[in-house]
């Protein structure tokens, strides 16, 4: 464990909590893609299949449970909460994310560390996390609504990406057997897609602030 990875885990968790609290506080999920949140929940469930078989540390196990619970809570809120679900942009959130799931599954069956059930699903979750933001990117381009995608959420999501890239650089420089290629390359793709999301977020945020009536 290094400080970059710990900071990355913390900012990742904070970004999820910020989004969950925003949805719960405003009882609204307008502008948020349920499909992206479903993909994130699927990422954690398929990545942490080893929760009950491999014990690495208390921190590792506790964080796995927390990530699964918080990402599932967001999906539950958007699908089941009687007030929140009314504000879901169902007509705009139409990205066919099933193709992302199938594509990542095929890729994981081809490129993985070891051909075991757990390893294939681990690689699947790594690839899926990289592309999971696409439905949210498309919804943002269509709706331009950033009310619930607070600046803090976008900031912590970006910080998570930045810290993890620093973590991989640190591990590459300090460890003999660097074998995080799947995580590293997929993480770079994820960061590039995040940068694209950030660009559209900034454009939408600027347009919205221009639209504000002069107080």
């Amino acid at each position: 464990m290094n400080i970059f990875r710990f900071a990355g885990d913390m900012t990742h968790l904070i970004s999820i909590l910020v989004l969950l609290l925003k949805i719960y506080a405003t009882k609204s999920c307008a502008g948020i893609s349920l499909k992206t949140q479903e993909l994130y929940a699927l990422v954690f469930v398929t990545r942490y299949l080893d929760l009950f078989t491999d014990f690495i540390s208390v921190y590792n196990s506790v964080m796995k449970v927390v990530f699964i619970l918080t990402s599932s809570a967001i999906v539950w809120c958007m699908r089941r909460h009687r007030i929140v679900k009314r504000s879901y942009d169902q007509a705009l959130d139409t990205f066919r994310h099933l193709f992302l799931v199938l594509g990542c599954l095929v890729l994981a069956l081809i490129v993985h560390d070891k051909f075991t059930f757990q390893e294939v699903f681990w690689a699947f979750s790594i690839y899926l996390e990289a592309v999971a933001i696409l439905p949210q990117l498309v919804l943002l381009q269509r709706s331009g609504n950033v009310d619930n995608l607070t600046g803090q959420y976008v900031f912590f999501l970006g910080a998570y990406r930045a810290f993890y890239i620093l973590n991989w650089i640190y591990r590459y420089l300090t460890e003999q057997h660097f074998r995080l290629w799947i995580s590293c390359i997929s993480g770079l793709v994820q960061t590039a897609l995040y940068a694209d999301f950030f660009y559209y977020y900034y454009i939408s945020w600027k347009n919205n602030s221009k639209l504000q009536l002069p107080s």
Partner: peptide, 10 residues
Amino acid sequence: TGDACTHDEL
């Protein structure tokens, strides 16, 4: 070795 397949990153 064993650690090759345990993923210690979240």
